[in-house]
Structures are given as structure tokens and as C-alpha cells.
């Protein structure tokens, strides 16, 4: 590999995980730079996991001031108003995360993610958008795709006791162990824009309902100019209206998306901490895989719903139509 040895300190600290993914993967991890925006419960879990894993640096973006609500499902903010008053979520979380692993550089980046130039993203190997708007997710994903180096792009969203992860690794090569042999594999990921515009009709029926439901919520928030979690039962008629339109446009029956699921997604605005731990855990595992180049990555959506307990991956791309 790149010839640089892990230090004795790193070998001692990372002993148990090196036994899982090997010293080369650990070396790649220590050189990776991760950008994270939108720091609520699930992203907090994600940050903890990658800081412990020993990535090179984590850059946090979230200019929201800490308030009572941000304490929910977030163990990085001590509930002391005197300590957090006037500080942003990113600043407070940065302080706590630094403490988890002194070998990881954790810093705060101020400002709005969606207005950043393409060059800004070049500094990173991984970009994670938590609870972003449809427009932000599309824009950042396009910028990442314009760069000559590959920036792994992820979005994550949790509502009620459900979670969604989206992954774009563009053209991704990895090695897979088949029996004793190592096999070179290649995957082609669609962009976020492509993945959310796949016609619904050819998508297999057993596909997670959450995929469709989340698209309805996305459109609702976009149309109404709402931020994540700014909704209630009062919005259900509007949401159902959007569902009807989308189903008609895609020539599928409205029963494709259960109303009860949409109701859960717009009323369960407080994150459920066990689901944050699960989805944040899966997301971190995927980022570790992508950075280390070890193991088959998730393509390209992951859904978890505590109600049925299933954590499924769905490959949604235009391959259904071709």
C-alpha cells in the first residue's frame, strides 16, 4: 500500500477493528476526510461511529442554535443551558466529538451547504447530508459528481420510527472475497436526481413502500417550503393530494403508498433514539466500506422501519426500464 505504517498507538487503540477490516483499511480510514451537515440524532450516531473508527477528519455543518429540541436523541449536547446558549449545534457537537478520539480532527464549517462552490467539496472524500431539502440534496450531489476525484455522497433522513439512506458512489470498484478468491467488481450508481426520478411503474412490487412515501414527503416539503419536521396531522390532506398526483403521473394505483405510512411520517416528528442508533450505525458501516474499499457497498437506498423490524436495501435505478 502507501507504505505508511500505523503507529503503535493506533494499533493499540484500533486493535479490535483491525481484526475486522485489516490494517490497510485502517490506514485508508485515517486519511479520509468527511463532511457532515444537518446534525440531529441519526447524524450524531453516525459521527460518533466514524470518529471512533478513526477517520482523518470530520467537518461539521449546522448553524442552528442549540435549543431544547436539539437535545432530543442527541447525546453530544450536555443539557446545560448556560453551556450551550448562543452556540450552534455544530459547535457543541464538535467539542464532544473531539473528546471521543483525540486522533481525529473535528472542526466546524459555518454557512449554507447549498451555496458552496464545487471546489469546496473537493477537500472531502465523503459528503453526508442529514435531513436536507430536495433542492440541496440534488445540488450538492451534482457538484460532487463534477469533480475529477470521486466523492462518496450520502443522504440520511429519519422520521417517526423509519429511516432512509441514499448512496451515490458513482462508478465504484471494489474487491469481493468469493470463497478464497478475490474478485474485482464494479457498480454504477445513479445520481440522486436520477434515483428519485425513476418511473414507478416498472419498480418491482415488493420494493419498500418507504421509497415512494419519502418521495411524496420530499415533494410536499419542497412545494410548501417546509424544513424537516415542520409538519403535522393538519398537513395530511395536502400530502395525500400530492400522493394522488404522483401515483397518477406514474400510472400506479394509490394503494401503492399506504396513507397510514404517510401519516406516521408527518406526525412522528421527534426522532426515535433506537432508530437513530440503527440507521446511524448502518450509514457509518457503509462509509467505512466505501473509504476502505472493502466489502460490497449498499446500492443505493436503505430502509429501516421499527414497525416490521426489517432493514432492507433497494437498488433503484433506471435499469428497471431498460
Amino acid at each position: 500500500m502507501d507504505g505508511e505504517e500505523l503507529t503503535a498507538q493506533e494499533t493499540a487503540l484500533y486493535d479490535r477493528q483491525i481484526r475486522v477490516w485489516g490494517a490497510n483499511a485502517q490506514r485508508r480510514l485515517t486519511k479520509s476526510h468527511i463532511l457532515v451537515s444537518g446534525i440531529k440524532g441519526t447524524v450524531t450516531e453516525f459521527c460518533k461511529n466514524i470518529v471512533l473508527a478513526g477517520v482523518g477528519s470530520v467537518t461539521l455543518m449546522d448553524d442552528n442554535l442549540v435549543n431544547e429540541e436539539s437535545l432530543n436523541a442527541n447525546f453530544l449536547i450536555p443539557p446545560d443551558e448556560n453551556a450551550y446558549r448562543g452556540k450552534t449545534v455544530a459547535e457543541i457537537c464538535c467539542d464532544s466529538l473531539k473528546d471521543f478520539n483525540p486522533m481525529v480532527l473535528v472542526s466546524v464549517e459555518k454557512g449554507d451547504l447549498s451555496t458552496r462552490s464545487t471546489e469546496f467539496f473537493e477537500k472531502f472524500d465523503v459528503v453526508v447530508i442529514g435531513y436536507g431539502s430536495l433542492a440541496t440534496k440534488k445540488a450538492v450531489n451534482e457538484k460532487c459528481r463534477k469533480l475529477s476525484k470521486r466523492v462518496a455522497f450520502y443522504t440520511v433522513d429519519c422520521r417517526d420510527s423509519c429511516g432512509e439512506i441514499f448512496v451515490d458512489l458513482q462508478d465504484y470498484k471494489y474487491t469481493k472475497k468469493k470463497l478464497e478468491e478475490k474478485v474485482e467488481c464494479e457498480l454504477n450508481f445513479p445520481s440522486f436526481q436520477e434515483a428519485v426520478s425513476v418511473p414507478w411503474k416498472p419498480i418491482p412490487r415488493r420494493t419498500a413502500k418507504l421509497y415512494f412515501a419519502m418521495r411524496v414527503i420530499e415533494v410536499f416539503e419542497e412545494n410548501e417550503g417546509r424544513k424537516h419536521g415542520e409538519c403535522s396531522l393538519l398537513d395530511l390532506p395536502t400530502v395525500l393530494e400530492i400522493k394522488k398526483k404522483l401515483c397518477e403521473a406514474n400510472s400506479v394505483s394509490e394503494s401503492h403508498i399506504p396513507d397510514s405510512l404517510l401519516e406516521r411520517l408527518i406526525t412522528g416528528t421527534i426522532e426515535f433514539p433506537p432508530v437513530c442508533a440503527i440507521v446511524g450505525g448502518i450509514l457509518a458501516q457503509e462509509v467505512i466500506k466505501a473509504v476502505s474499499g472493502k466489502g460490497e457497498p449498499l446500492k443505493n437506498f436503505f430502509y429501516y422501519d421499527a414497525q416490521d423490524g426489517k432493514g432492507v436495501m433497494e437498488d433503484i435505478s433506471n435499469s428497471f426500464t431498460s
Partner: peptide, 27 residues
């Protein structure tokens, strides 16, 4: 490194799986 793992019956462990399992336990 390898001998120590075998001699100590060392469990291979990562934070992510533990976090996921803890979430499942609470559910």
C-alpha cells in the same frame, strides 16, 4: 498480532454493529 487474537480468544468488534444491536435491544 494474530497469535494474540487466537491466544486471547479476542472478539472482533466494531462500534457500528454494537450501536445497531443496542438500538434493536431497546426496540
Amino acid at each position: 498480532f494474530e497469535a494474540k487474537g487466537i491466544a486471547g480468544n479476542i472478539v472482533h468488534a466494531v462500534a457500528t454493529t454494537n450501536a445497531i444491536v443496542a438500538g434493536l435491544i431497546v426496540i
